[in-house]
Amino acid sequence: MAAETPALPGAELFHPRVRLRKGLGSAFLVLGVASVVFGLAMLAFLVFDVVERAIPWLRVEFLTQFDSRFSDRAGIKAGLYGTAYMMFFTILISFPLGVMSAIYLEEYARDSWPKTVIQINIANLAGVPSIVYGLLGLTVFVRWMALGRSVLAGALTMALLVLPIIIVATQEALRAVPSSIRDASYGVGATRWQTIWHHVLPQALPGILTGNILAASRAIGETAPLITIGALTFVPFTPQSPLDRFTALPIQIFNWTSKPQAEFHDLAAAAILTLLVVLLTMNSLAILLRNRAVRRRAG
């Protein structure tokens, strides 16, 4: 072929340099793999370091003792209880609010300016630094509503913090439900709410739960807003009511990390390992739910 085509004018100026150009691609491929591996290596390095430091400290007493000035008697009981209480109320508040907002935006609101405003607002709230939510919690919940530096004040602050995540995830889950299901339901005379409650929500449930679990795992690890609203760092008791003062697991990690002694850094590592195990369990659950949802939609 090539021999038969007459040479175009200026063809001698064209240098394909194919080997060089393909070489560039191969070099980039190496660089790309290296970038991904760099990130994963950092993660592995972090986990390895934490596990190595934590292992000698992992005893049952570590989970059942309160904090102490003496590293060998210190435990995370107060942090575990505080985190559990706070998360219970956080989920209780944010789950219904977030899901209801998302249903309104996806199933009720028409494409007009109120919807646009709420939608932009939510996207913007997701970008507000967590410590600013802490300042909001300090003025509104701790001072103005006079809840004090309590479990409930912490839970309300965290609920507002994760609300945008829940709303966006729920909206995506609702959007994934085919509109033919809604049409069929309306077709047999169901109202809007009957359609949502009996047909749309059951379909979207796995996706909604996944989003909520991911939001909860975000809240469990958040530290800065709790420091701002004044959660305690040293607590030798568990909260008895939602209006009691409290500490949380990440705060205990922060407190131990801030101490100069190496034993307390090891304790921090043990608390981090506990936190990571909790997060890993929650995320596995979320992935499991997502996979089941995908399979059901496919099947």
Binding site: T223, A268, L275
Partner: peptide, 8 residues
């Protein structure tokens, strides 16, 4: 990964 862990 929680940011307090990254701080550590």
């Amino acid at each position: 990964v929680p940011t307090v862990v990254y701080g550590f």
